[in-house]
């Protein structure tokens, strides 16, 4: 499965009068894991929602390979191979795990491949096979997150948009989820655009990172270099450099301000 490059150019989205993202440009090359970091309300989720067609941008252009997908129907975007794992999992609570997964495959043209894909997904997330017949609301938080990821995989996507997979999960479970994400990326070649508040984890997993603040991209580099940057360390990784007497230098500011 070879994907295409996702390219956002100068995208602006607003909720009524409130601008959530103000001119975001970013690129997600095929096969990579790209992370978007940022604090609460920076506009991370809005970027994903704009890509998947839930929010129509007021300006800018979104392209996936040769297709212009700006503001088109969410169903059409799924058919182009972009699957969204929504924030807070958003599984169908009363449907069985199996039906949840089948709904993920709703847009698939070739229905005969669906049972085979179901098995492939169970291979990554065996716990879901055990819970197959149970309603999704009975799953634990971590299992629901796994279900949400598996459901997105059922659309056979070339690009998965992941919105805060660590939300509300224990550190151990979070690491487990991230291991699965990396495995999906490495073994299936699925491109991943990841939005995370847990910057440490995201920077360890991703190849490339963007830092978002107040709806603008303020830094963009390979994750290795981002990890080494002083201001990223201080503001996102919580590592503080203190002077001999323990006070911080007043001059220490974010370099992008």
């Amino acid at each position: 499965m070879t994907g295409s490059t996702l390219k956002l150019s100068n995208v602006e989205s607003a909720y009524g009068p409130v601008k959530a993202i103000r001119g975001v440009s970013l690129q997600v090359p095929p096969g990579m894991i790209v992370a978007v970091l940022g604090s609460n309300g920076a506009g991370k989720s809005t970027i994903l929602k704009t890509i998947s067609g839930m929010v129509v941008p007021s300006r800018g252009k979104i392209e996936y390979g040769a297709h212009d997908i700006t503001g088109i129907d969410p169903a059409a975007i799924v058919r182009y191979g972009i699957s969204h794992v929504p924030e807070g999992r958003d599984v169908f609570p009363l449907l069985s795990v199996r039906d949840n997964l089948l709904m993920g495959a709703y847009t698939r043209k070739n229905r005969t491949e669906v049972p085979r894909d179901l098995e492939a997904v169970f291979d990554y997330l065996p716990i879901l096979k055990e819970r197959c017949a149970q309603p999704a609301q009975l799953l634990s938080g971590g299992q629901q997150q796994m279900l949400a990821i598996a459901r997105a995989m059922m659309a056979s996507p070339s690009l998965i948009l992941l919105d805060e997979p660590s939300l509300g999960l224990s550190p151990k479970l979070t690491i487990e989820i991230f291991e699965i994400i990396v495995r999906v990326n490495r073994e299936r070649g699925t491109t991943i655009l990841l939005v995370e508040q847990n910057a440490n984890l995201a920077l360890n997993v991703a190849d490339h990172g963007y830092v978002l603040e107040n709806g603008r991209i303020v830094a963009d580099d390979s994750c290795e270099r981002l990890r080494a940057k002083e201001d990223i360390k201080e503001f996102y990784l919580g590592m503080r450099e203190t002077g001999i007497r323990g006070e911080r230098r007043w001059k220490k500011k974010k370099t992008w301000r």
């Binding site: 998947s52 839930m54 969410p74 169903a75 059409a76 975007i77 799924v78 058919r79 699957s83 969204h84 929504p86 958003d90 599984v91 169908f92 609570p93 009363l94 449907l95 039906d99 949840n100 089948l102 709904m103 993920g104 709703y106 847009t107 459901r151 659309a155």
Partner: peptide
């Protein structure tokens, strides 16, 4: 399929949109 999709849309409209229903 369409019946289950109707249930899905009634349980979580946003997720249904995300799935391309």
């Amino acid at each position: 399929r369409i019946g289950v999709a109707m249930q899905a849309a009634s349980q979580s409209q946003s997720a249904a949109y995300y799935m391309g229903i």
